[in-house]
Amino acid sequence: MTATPVAAGRPGTGPGPAIGGRAGFADVISSEWMKIRTVRSTFWTLVALFAGSAVISLLITLAAANSYAKDLAEGKPDSADIVLAGLAFVGQIAAYVLGVMTISAEYSTGGIRTTLTAMPRRVEILVAKAILLAVIVFVIGLVTAFVCFYLGNIPLHAKHVGVNLSYPGATRAIFGSALYLAGLSVFGLALGFLLRHTAGAITIGLALIFIIGNLFTLIPGSVGHWLYKVMPGNAGGQVTSFGETGRNPDKAFAPWTGFTVFLIEVVVLLIVGAILFERRDA
């Protein structure tokens, strides 16, 4: 070690781009990508997403294969949604939680102040986080969806009622599941930016997706019906179901319509998050 505390001599002569350059969006992306990679919670949340979804899908089809085969034999309408059931439980929660944590962990540790001192152009940080999350969760979600599809089909094939990719809406459901999970993670990110608090954002978001959405069925008439339809979980989840029309065609949006509504909701929430992020003191 040298005796002088600072090796680089005069200011502006050290490493880095010459003054006059500009730290751009590519730098923000590469920094945020490293931030996501270098905390363990990301890894474990994605492991939970993959393994949890696959195991639950297998267990559910194991348990349900008999009655599923019986229903089909009796000519009752049924869909093959059960093969992706694991994604609908564990996958959704994991994707959402990952989205929340991507920003709320920075608030809970105080790291946000370091982040914003290094990069004060806040919207770039928000956009970089959203893009990276969406891509990561889409890729992991797609792999998981295929694994769930083939794993969940094993018990069904044993009863000769397995489905393959030519089943109506099967590929749409698989790709749609990955897209829905990616959207859900960005939904979590937006709520994380709005609430800046891990537990709060997780509680509110999961309540919105799993509980409040279904509570609206209790409101009679067209208002309740409409509210049920547009709730993010109900609208976005349509694209993850098998069959041409998605589940509950009389109550819910058609698959891609629902997903578009969901995407608009996510983007609106993200914009509100960006405005508050920009305006608030860190």
């Binding site: 490493p15 880095g16 781009p17 350059g21 730290a23 751009g24 730098d27 923000v28 590469s30 920094s31 945020e32 490293m34 931030k35 270098t38 905390v39 363990r40 919670s41 962990a105 920075e106 540790t109 105080g110 790291g111 946000i112 102040r113 370091t114 982040t115 001192t117 290094a118 990069m119």
Partner: peptide
């Protein structure tokens, strides 16, 4: 240097600094 606790504790010291360096294009 604002506050020594403005750091995500789950990241190593090296990675913390590397994330900051990357955001400004510092080698």
């Amino acid at each position: 240097l604002l506050d020594a606790k403005s750091v995500h504790g789950g990241r190593t010291a090296y990675n913390h600094l590397a994330c900051l360096a990357k955001s400004n294009g510092i080698p």
